[in-house]
């Protein structure tokens, strides 16, 4: 197995409550994959399982091809899987620059440095010494993506990155994600926003009530079909 991330029959949840009931998917190097699903179906729980935040009851999580039994919060980042968490997780007590440096905590060398992130998002350079949360929503999302890139990830996971953002800003984000993908970074996009999914992901999985109920390639699936799985 040389996948970056794989779930095999993962059952996980919080406390004694199972949220995921046997979820499987594989992300190979360079792939861009979307996980779609309505509110509360367990999309973030899948991310949280990988991050050791949700509890793994049964099944296996493979990181970089290796079955990982003790999932610590930092395991993924150190193995080259960077996560932009839902809500972005920008720290208000750190400046923009400090938030970015924090993203390099896993000490993985590669293309991405502070300078390169500032080139990608010049506005972050302008606001480098402002508090992370003093930025606008769109700029905070840039900061969250920039921070994840600082880990030089093989796989970039984004949990509903378009949430609360204006369409123009989502367009810009789609453009950045496509470029990253073209440069070889694998992407796992968790979304309810179809424009972003259609522009970024090649493969999709639909999650419903803790199970993957459908999957396919976005190019072979009409927007209306995808929409069915998301609209309430």
């Amino acid at each position: 197995m040389n996948s970056l991330l794989a779930f095999e029959n993962v059952e996980s949840g919080y406390g004694n409550a199972r949220i995921l009931h046997g979820v499987s998917f594989v992300i190979a190097p360079g792939e861009s994959v979307a996980i779609l699903g309505r509110n509360g179906v367990g999309k973030s729980t899948a991310v949280n399982t990988m991050l050791g935040i949700a509890r793994l009851f049964a099944g296996d999580v493979y990181i970089q091809g290796r079955r990982t039994t003790s999932l610590r919060h930092y395991t993924a980042a150190r193995a080259g899987i960077a996560v932009v968490v839902q809500g972005r997780g920008i720290l208000p007590n750190l400046t923009v620059r400090e938030n970015l440096i924090l993203g390099g905590a896993a000490n993985r060398r590669g293309h991405w440095t502070l300078e390169r992130v500032f080139e990608l998002y010049p506005v972050l350079a302008e606001r480098a010494n402002s508090a992370g949360t003093a930025l606008s929503g769109g700029q905070q999302q840039m900061l969250a993506i920039g921070r994840a890139l600082m880990a030089n990830p093989d796989l970039l996971v984004l949990d509903e990155p378009s949430e609360g953002l204006a369409p123009v800003i989502i367009d810009e984000m789609a453009e950045v994600l496509r470029r990253l993908s073209a440069d070889g970074t694998a992407i796992l996009l968790i979304e309810q926003n179809l424009t972003l999914v259609e522009r970024v992901a090649d493969i999709f999985h639909v999650l419903s009530k803790g199970r993957v109920v459908e999957h396919g390639r976005t190019e072979h699936t009409s927007a209306a079909d995808l929409q069915k799985h998301i609209a309430i």
């Binding site: 930092y74 980042a77 997780g89 007590n93 750190l94």
Partner: peptide, 24 residues
Amino acid sequence: SRVGLFVRAASHDPVIAAVQGVDT
């Protein structure tokens, strides 16, 4: 210092800090 930055990050949100790769 870099460690000092991690201390401040972890003091505010240990989970977010750890998700970035910090061994809190």
